[in-house]
């Protein structure tokens, strides 16, 4: 235990028992999209179809990755579920309730950490609690536990400017988890991080999810990252935004990045996704 940043998420021995417990008691939310379309108006007045008639059911507690190029509507999908935008047609339902505005069971991690620089790490994590006008004291202990789990114990009084990019994104994840959301939405959360930090974060997110057992929708444009993390992989393509492939990723967990590339299944899944992008002309062979 030389490095605090490599905290509990990584200590495999402790995890196994917790994983068993969490899978017996799924805390995830069920997500259903019915015929959801989203059409934007461009400045010239043309219709831009960001999502076209998407129907999708996400099982509670599953880790769903959504991979596709820019403009394929994956971020639109996330904004719909976060209640930030309304669909043009169709319904978005989380645990039986239609999403009309921000849903209390949803936590979001954005591409940039979006920490408030004038607040300490702890105050940043407690921001959702303040906004929902809940008692701060009830959540402080949980916030400190979350920090410990992401290897940032003792950093609660620091300011974001004193942390590295990876640490800041960990704090953003803690903030999304503070109210134990049934659905965690992650919008290219590691896109701004360097390769090594990113690899560590991917590993840590798997740990976090195995422990918490919530439903995760993880959006990325990195095929390897998506295959590594997903139970279920949605491959999307743009104009109009559609789901081209709905792939079940069947590989045992915890997955290890050290040997995942030697796994023939991993290579097969990655190839399947690539073939779609090549067929669509997104990747040129």
């Amino acid at each position: 235990m030389s490095v605090p940043a490599a905290g509990t998420w990584m200590s495999d021995g402790v995890q196994t028992a917790e994983i068993a417990a969490s899978s017996a008691d799924p805390k995830g939310a069920a997500v259903r999209l019915q015929d959801v379309s989203k059409i934007y108006q461009s400045r010239q007045g043309e219709d831009i179809v960001a999502l076209e008639r998407i129907s999708l059911d996400i099982a509670p507690g599953s880790f769903v990755c959504c991979v596709g190029p820019s403009g394929c509507g994956k971020s639109t999908l996330l904004s719909l579920l976060a209640g930030l935008i309304a669909p043009t047609t169709g319904r978005t339902v989380i645990d039986g309730a239609e999403v009309k505005s921000a849903h209390p069971k949803v936590g979001v991690v954005f591409q940039s950490d979006l920490l408030l620089y004038w607040r300490t790490v702890l105050d940043n994590i407690l921001l959702p609690v303040e906004i929902k006008k809940l008692r701060r004291a009830d959540y402080e202990k949980h916030a400190l536990e979350l920090l410990e789990q992401v290897g940032l114990a003792g950093f609660e009084e620091k300011y974001p400017s004193e942390l590295s990019g990876g640490m800041r994104q960990r704090v953003a994840i803690c903030r999304a988890l503070i109210q134990e959301p049934g659905l965690l939405l992650m919008d290219e959360p590691f896109g701004a991080l360097d390769a090594l930090t990113r690899e560590q974060m991917i590993h840590d997110v798997q740990r976090m999810w195995m422990r918490v057992g919530n439903t995760v929708l993880f959006i990325t444009h990195d095929i390897d990252e998506a295959v590594f993390l997903a139970d279920r992989l949605l491959v999307m393509s743009p104009r109009p935004g559609r789901i081209d492939l709905d792939l079940t990723i069947d590989m045992p967990r915890p997955r290890q990045q050290s040997d995942i590339h030697e796994n023939p299944n991993f290579a097969r899944y990655v190839r399947q996704v690539r073939e779609i992008f090549e067929a669509k002309g997104i990747l040129k062979a």
């Binding site: 030389s2 490095v3 940043a5 940032l152 003792g154 004193e162 090594l196 930090t197 690899e199 560590q200």
Partner: peptide, 16 residues
């Protein structure tokens, strides 16, 4: 991860 680790070992030194 390594560059985070060096900061993490001694939180606070940067600021001082």
């Amino acid at each position: 991860m390594s560059q985070e680790a060096t900061v993490a070992v001694s939180p606070g030194t940067e600021k001082k």
